[in-house]
Simulated assay, not measured.
Amino acid sequence: MVKTKVITIASVSGGGKTAVTEELRKRLSTSEALYFDEYDFEGAPDDLVKWVEEGPDYNQWNLEPLKADLESFLEREEPPAYIIIDYPFSYKNDKLKDFIDLSIYIATPLDIAMARRILREHLKKTSIEINDELDYYLKFGRVAYLEMENAIKLNSDFIVAGTLKVIDIVDAILNKIETL
C-alpha cells in the first residue's frame, strides 16, 4: 500500500494558490483537494495586519476542521494517492505540519499578486474604492504580504516562480513530486 502524499500550496493572496491547486488536482491521478479559504477557523485574527505586527502566532488559528477533512481522506478504505491543500502556512501550524510531505511556495511578485486581486475582487468597484484598497495596502496591508515572503517562503520545501504560466508551475511541481 502506497502512503498518501500531502502537498500544500502557499503564496500571498493573488499568488496563484487556487489555480495551481485546481490544475494539480486534475493532473494527479487519484487526488483530492482542500481549500483553506472554504473554512471559518476559530481563533483566526480579525485584523491580519495587527496579528502580523504583534508577531504572528500561526497556532492561534484552530485548524481542526481542515485537519478533520484531511484525516477523513486519509482514513478512506482506498485513500487518494495525493491530497493537495491550498493552504498559506506551510509548516507553521502544529496541527497540520506533521501531515505535510511537500510544501510548495509560489513566489509571485507582490505587484502581480495585487493586480490579480484587483482584477478578481474589484470588478464592480469604483475607482475611488480601488484607490482606497491600494492606499490601505501601501499603508498597512503590505506587512502581511511581507510576512508570507519572509516566513512562509523560507519554511517551504520547494519554491516556484509565480511569474510562470499555471501549466508551467504545475509541471515544475510534478517534477518535484517525482523525487518524493
Score class of each variant (00 low, 15 high):
127 S>N: 13
85 I>T: 00
69 D>P: 06
65 P>W: 04
107 A>S: 15
93 N>M: 07
106 I>P: 09
123 L>S: 13
78 E>G: 03
39 Y>A: 08
70 L>M: 07
99 F>R: 10
88 P>E: 03
77 E>C: 03
119 L>I: 11
80 P>K: 00
31 S>G: 02
100 I>F: 06
151 A>G: 02
139 K>H: 10
154 L>F: 05
89 F>T: 02
152 I>C: 01
44 A>W: 04
148 M>Y: 14
136 Y>Q: 11
114 M>E: 05
33 A>N: 11
107 A>F: 12
134 L>M: 13
33 A>L: 12
101 D>V: 00
139 K>I: 04
72 S>I: 09
125 K>T: 05
66 L>H: 06
147 E>Y: 00
82 Y>A: 00
120 R>N: 14
119 L>C: 15
154 L>I: 09
32 E>K: 15
96 L>D: 01
108 T>P: 09
117 R>W: 12
105 Y>D: 10
99 F>V: 10
78 E>T: 13
119 L>S: 13
76 R>H: 06
127 S>Q: 14
121 E>Y: 05
48 L>M: 15
111 D>I: 06
155 N>F: 08
42 E>D: 15
153 K>R: 15
49 V>L: 02
96 L>N: 01
118 I>D: 00
125 K>A: 05
36 F>A: 07
87 Y>V: 01
65 P>V: 08
79 P>L: 02
149 E>N: 08
56 P>E: 12
91 Y>I: 01
124 K>A: 13
34 L>N: 14
92 K>M: 08
111 D>H: 12
90 S>P: 03
133 E>G: 13
59 N>Q: 04
130 I>G: 08
135 D>A: 13
123 L>P: 08
134 L>F: 11
72 S>R: 15
149 E>K: 11
47 D>H: 02
153 K>H: 08
37 D>S: 10
34 L>C: 06
57 D>A: 05
113 A>C: 01
46 D>V: 03
96 L>Y: 01
80 P>W: 06
108 T>L: 02
90 S>H: 06
154 L>C: 08
121 E>C: 06
117 R>H: 07
82 Y>N: 02
111 D>N: 13
117 R>T: 09
146 L>H: 08
109 P>D: 04
155 N>S: 15
138 L>A: 12
145 Y>R: 00
148 M>T: 11
96 L>A: 04
139 K>F: 08
35 Y>F: 14
95 K>P: 08
46 D>Q: 10
139 K>A: 14
34 L>M: 10
69 D>A: 00
93 N>L: 07
124 K>N: 15
131 N>H: 13
54 E>T: 10
118 I>K: 00
71 E>R: 12
117 R>K: 13
